[in-house]
Nucleic acid binder design. Structure first.
Lengths: 192, 192
DNA sequence: CATCCTTGTTGAACATCCTTGACAGTATGA
DNA sequence: TCATACTGTCAAGGATGTTCAACAAGGATG
């Protein structure tokens, strides 16, 4: 259950910065009463108000809630999560067995000409980055599409929708690393 | 930048799941009007309402806002944009600026012939792994010494004492990743 | 064509959040 | 002791979010 203790969390953040309710309120452009009520969990603030307040700390909204969510959320690593690698066309080789206590996975990827991770932009928790070792590849992240060549690199939060496509005529080789994927919805193992 | 386009983002998520406003409203325990108004950005929802709705998708609040907030982060790095870290002898190029919030650091490393991380075995918290892209290198981990060649890879817990040495006569190129980021903050950095 | 279902939108009523302004408690210093 | 300045809390009312109910547009069925 929820137990989204917004008030307590806000109070902690404010106090850790040695700010009074009034001082924070002033910076945020709201009144001290607002902060008082929120901290007591007497109200559930509107997103716009909460954003004003967090901007003044400053703390991003996702950071604010990440702390809350990690407290009651368990993160599981499925044993078979990374076993499905490569689907005939694409070749993803995992460096080392994927073990529950590993904090990242390292891949040696080979994209033949025309290889494509698919039209459906994928989104999952975590971060990923890589260096183009040979060939070139077109990468789309959050609507931004670029063609990277040998020596180029990328790094992004995997929650942004992304897609990989080899539009050249030679094989593209990438060494990439991903920080832990969260559990994927449904059966298909998400990757990339 | 504000531009927190909560409505648009919600609409995207709802539609990607093939849900109508009414269906989502039903699952979330709010009314269809609420969702309509939010999606049109006619209102800034309260956190409690937004949480109900996101729970029904389901999407965590931090995920929801992550998409908005991460939109401005740099994703693509041209070869000459990598941050040089080398100390004269060794050359390490970091993918992306030193951002404190990243969960790993990605490196494009160049070891000239004779390069050596030193006799003192290094130990630090975290994990590291890499793929040898060109040349060869001698790696010692916890007393076990191996020479790896192009296409070989390694992965170990960084708490084990380790050392890298290029005993060949050509440059060795490695793409590696470390968790947690060992190059996160300024100052001298231990690595490898 | 009519009928029925679903879709998203909107005005008015209601519920909740937010501000105004006042209050009590504590600490510092004259 | 009194004055001043700070802290957090709270009631009343204005501002904003949410619901209820009606509406129009689009598809599907007969």
């Amino acid at each position: 259950m929820s137990g989204f203790n917004v008030g307590t969390r806000l109070k902690q953040l404010r106090q850790s910065r040695d700010l009074s309710q009034r001082e924070l309120a002033k910076r945020a452009g709201v009144t001290n009463s607002t902060i008082s009520l929120i901290e007591q969990n007497s109200v559930s603030p509107s997103v716009s108000s909460l954003k004003k307040i967090l901007d003044a700390l400053p703390v991003s909204i996702s950071e604010f809630f990440a702390g809350e969510e990690l407290a009651n959320e368990q993160v599981f690593y499925r044993a078979d999560e990374l076993t499905e690698i490569g689907d005939g066309n694409l070749s993803w080789r995992l460096v080392g067995a994927r073990r529950p206590n590993r904090s990242m996975s390292l891949l040696y990827e080979h994209y033949p000409p025309g290889a494509d991770t698919g039209e459906d932009m994928l989104e999952h928790a975590g971060e990923e980055g890589g260096v183009i070792v040979a060939g070139s590849i077109e990468i789309s992240v959050n609507g931004d599409t670029q063609v990277l060549h040998q020596g180029d690199a990328y790094y992004f939060d995997s929650r942004l929708p992304h897609r990989f496509r080899n539009v050249g005529d030679e094989e593209c080789v990438i060494v990439s690393a991903n920080t832990p994927p969260s559990f994927a919805e449904g059966g298909t193992t998400q990757h990339h």
